[in-house]
């Protein structure tokens, strides 16, 4: 059911699920339709997202672009379960994020690897500890195994010789690579990144994006990345473009691409 038809079918699915679990029979990684979002109250209430509808399929690398203020970050926070949905349907990794169950948002977040514009590493930890910290969320992984997997992950992002460096002693590009290692080490089912190259110069930005793409491809992880950086558009399977809170028509057209592939 990797088609847009599947996405339309979710309205019926949600109602059926609402009695029990919020796990729908949807195989798309992200599937949303009719998403409207507003900031503010009363007079100041302002619509930011209008009838947003798209799906992302397993293994896809999708870029989200658009002018500043068009609602990209807002959409990302909705997908990540960081903001409550207001109108429309949203399924992420099989969880229903409109009317979610009590732990659904937390469970979704745990299955997502986040890469932020600023690295958002914990400054009191070393590179290794920053990656290891993700295994605090996976009690079944022993401390030793967590350490080893974190170290391997850092080697993969080229920081095998910087394991015990404090964050403050790493360069911007190195920090962002630690952030990538942290995002990927727990085996996320989806990677969300918001302008991960914005704080980096061109060369290290490219390097970071290449790394992210390579690792995601290798592990078959889907990526949704917000970026302004036109130099990295080539890594995408698909590009979605937001304009004033609406998905531009050509990106909506691209929705059928994976089904055609």
């Amino acid at each position: 059911m990797n088609t847009t038809n599947g996405a339309r079918g979710t309205a019926g699915d949600s109602r059926a699920e609402s009695a029990g679990s919020s796990m729908p029979a949807v195989s798309s990684v992200i599937q949303c339709s009719g998403v409207n979002f507003f900031f503010g109250q009363g007079e100041l209430r302002k619509q930011i997202l209008f009838e947003v509808e798209f799906a992302i399929e397993p293994g896809e690398i999708v870029l989200l672009t658009g002018p500043s203020g068009s609602g990209k970050t807002t959409l990302l926070t909705l997908i990540a379960g960081l903001r409550s949905m207001q109108e429309g349907q949203m399924h992420v990794l099989g969880y229903r994020l409109h009317n979610p169950g009590p732990r659904d948002l937390l469970e979704v977040r745990r299955r997502i690897g986040f890469i932020f514009q600023a690295h958002n590493l914990l400054p009191y930890l070393t590179a290794l500890q920053n990656v290891q910290v993700m295994f605090e969320l996976q009690p079944n992984v022993s401390a030793e195994e967590g350490r080893q997997r974190a170290a391997r992950m850092l080697e993969q992002v080229g920081l095998g010789d910087r394991l015990h460096y404090q964050v403050a002693r790493l360069s911007g590009g190195q920090r962002q690579r630690v952030a990538i290692a942290r995002a990927l080490v727990g085996g996320p089912q989806l990677v969300l990144a918001d302008e991960p190259t914005a704080a980096l110069d061109g060369a290290s930005g490219r390097e970071v994006v290449n790394l992210l793409q390579a690792l995601a491809r290798e592990q078959g992880r889907p990526i949704l990345m917000v970026t302004h950086d036109t130099r990295v558009l080539d890594i995408a399977d698909r590009i979605l473009e937001l304009q004033d809170g609406r998905l531009a028509s050509h990106s909506t057209g691209a929705l059928s691409k994976p089904a055609a592939v």
Binding site: L82, E107, R109, R110, R111, I112, F114, N120, L122, P123
Partner: peptide
Amino acid sequence: LPQYATMKAMGFS
């Protein structure tokens, strides 16, 4: 707070 917000976002309860 930003660190705690980050941890919440990453799924820390």
